[in-house]
């Protein structure tokens, strides 16, 4: 697995993919729909997978002493690495935002808190599920897979941004320690959804890719 991941980083990774991970810094914008930072990370992944197709990685991987499903595993593990990295960076900017902008109230959507991180992980899980299953059905239709993943993600993003503004749910928008503690189950829910959907994505995508004639 280490070798496969090394291959992904050295040959496949598009330079913009790690750059988009830094977009967690957008949490310092006073009023902004912060879930868009997660969208940018998926855009970075799209660039990498487009790059992978254009560089004909399929034919390179086919010559290596690996099973066909290992190609899918490398792709999913790479995406997880990028998504977890971006989540960690976003978490750091949540802390920084609380420190630098006390009392900030994001009028546009979710605030920089654990609710945001939980929602981000759910979005990544949904993205992985739709994107990888769609991509490895053909092995090359990256654009169609990305479009489908976005169609699944955007309604969830809008719902997550709107949720904290409903009466009775205003605690989801708070950034104080007490509110964050109350939001902890949402983060844990996000971690679980991310893990389960990503695992399902790998299993189904690998199964589908085995049947594809290259």
């Amino acid at each position: 697995m280490k070798t496969l991941l090394y291959k992904q980083l050295r040959l496949v990774c598009h330079p913009m993919t790690p750059v988009f991970c830094l977009f967690g810094a957008m949490l310092l914008i006073p009023n902004y729909p912060y879930s868009v930072t997660f969208f940018y990370v998926t855009l970075g992944l799209f660039f990498t997978f487009l790059n992978m197709r254009e560089q004909k990685d399929i034919y390179y991987s086919a010559l290596l002493p690996i099973r066909k499903r290992d190609t899918v595993r490398a792709a999913v593990v790479f995406a997880v690495l990028v998504e977890v990295l971006s989540a960690v960076i976003t978490a750091l900017f949540c802390l920084l935002s609380a420190k630098l902008q006390p009392g900030k109230d994001n009028a546009v959507g979710m605030d920089a808190n654990l609710m945001l991180l939980g929602a981000g992980l759910v979005l990544y899980g949904v993205f992985n599920l739709v994107f990888f299953i769609s991509l490895y059905r053909s092995g090359y239709k990256v654009g169609a897979a990305y479009l489908k993943a976005n169609i699944a993600m955007w309604p969830l993003m809008l719902a997550a941004e709107a949720l904290p503004h409903f009466p009775g749910l205003l605690w989801l928008n708070r950034v104080d320690a007490q509110a964050n503690l109350r939001q902890l189950p949402i983060l844990l829910f996000g971690v679980a959804v991310f893990a389960v959907l990503t695992l399902l994505a790998y299993r189904r995508a690998a199964q589908l890719y085995e049947k594809v004639d290259l």
Partner: peptide, 26 residues
Amino acid sequence: GVVLGGIDFYPKKKIAVLTDVTRRFY
């Protein structure tokens, strides 16, 4: 060892980089 025509993958990568990645698999 498999050679499918020439190399139509990773045209912009240096040979040294391609070898460095490939040799780790064997």
